[in-house]
Design a protein around this nucleic acid. Structure first.
Length: 292
DNA sequence: AAACAGGAACCAC
DNA sequence: GTGGTTCCTGTT
């Protein structure tokens, strides 16, 4: 793969294992929207761009060449997903699941944005989460003009510290509003240090994260996987719970047991397995009739 | 229009 | 530590 400049941005030439829909519509991120033509527009770390796929080339319209290392990291382009898929395909269920999410990649997102977004994800659905995250960005982030339209960066802890519980409720955060205020304060005032947590191993980082208000085991696993490079994390949401119970376990095993089983079974690739399974579960809905 | 979907907190035990 | 209930809001 190489990266070139073009008139409106940059091009990633000859990218493998890369499908926009699988990457941006698989529940790992909330700020990218399908423009109804298969391209996706959104904001990452203050950069508003549009992704357009053409064959094996990916256009990042609005992308700057001096940000090329940022995009390589964000899109996890240095990882060999073919190899991961080969390893996971030894398991028959995963072999099937991978077919449904061929081009998934796990993004490397900002820890703070990911943490707040997944606090909002508790007992919530993707369109609602997206709306709340968008509202927070519009109210507390910085304006970016792209293609003649307004976009907003996700606020850093300092900017989000101006948010009150009332304002966050208006943004659609519901009962999670006080958790966001409290956790933002913990981070801003240095009692929680996301960079330090990121430097710990998966188990210790998990222990630290669940000390924070609004973060339970599942949300902690999402933060670890989607923003801290912990690919051995295995977040168990309702969808993953359903596939796991259907294909591997009894219908009544606890979330913790499913988590332990997944981490044990898929090891260093547990996070990737989780993504394929999540996508698979959502495709299976209605067809095979997953229980619960 | 009542039922349902979705994880964490919180309180019992 | 496990189990039951509550939180909020849109959709069916």
């Amino acid at each position: 793969m190489e990266i070139l400049e073009y008139s409106e941005g940059i091009i990633l030439k000859d990218v493998k294992d890369f499908e926009l829909k699988h990457i941006f519509d698989c529940g790992q991120c909330f700020r990218w929207n399908d423009d109804r033509d298969g391209s996706y527009t959104g904001v990452a770390s203050g950069r508003a761009v549009r992704f357009i796929k053409d064959g094996s080339d990916v256009y990042i319209k609005g992308g700057k060449i001096h940000d090329k290392d940022f995009w390589i990291h964000y899109l996890d382009l240095n990882r060999d997903y073919g190899k991961i898929k080969d390893e996971l395909s030894k398991d028959e269920t995963l072999k099937e699941a991978i077919k449904h999410g061929e081009g998934i990649r796990i993004l490397n997102q900002e820890p703070f944005e990911t943490l707040i977004s997944f606090i909002i994800s508790a007992n919530n659905r993707i369109p609602m989460i997206k709306r709340a995250v968008e509202n927070i960005s519009r109210n507390f982030g910085e304006k970016i003009i792209f293609e003649g339209r307004e976009y907003y960066s996700f606020p850093d802890p300092e900017r989000l510290s101006y948010a009150t519980v009332e304002k966050l409720e208006e943004c659609g955060c519901g009962f999670r509003a006080p958790y966001i205020v409290e956790t933002t304060r913990e981070i801003l005032e240095g009692r929680a240090d996301l960079e330090h947590i990121k430097s710990l191993d998966t188990d210790n980082a998990h222990r630290e994260l669940i000390k924070l208000k609004g973060i339970g085991p599942k949300v902690a696993d999402c933060i670890l996987l989607f923003s801290m490079g912990k690919h051995d994390a295995f977040p168990v949401d309702v969808w993953v719970k359903r596939v796991m119970q259907h294909f591997y376990l009894a219908p009544d095993v606890s979330l913790k047991k499913i988590r332990d089983f997944g981490r044990e079974k898929f090891g260093k690739n547990a996070g990737f397995a989780q993504q394929y399974l999540f996508y698979y579960a959502r495709d299976l809905k209605g067809k095979e009739g997953l229980k619960n």
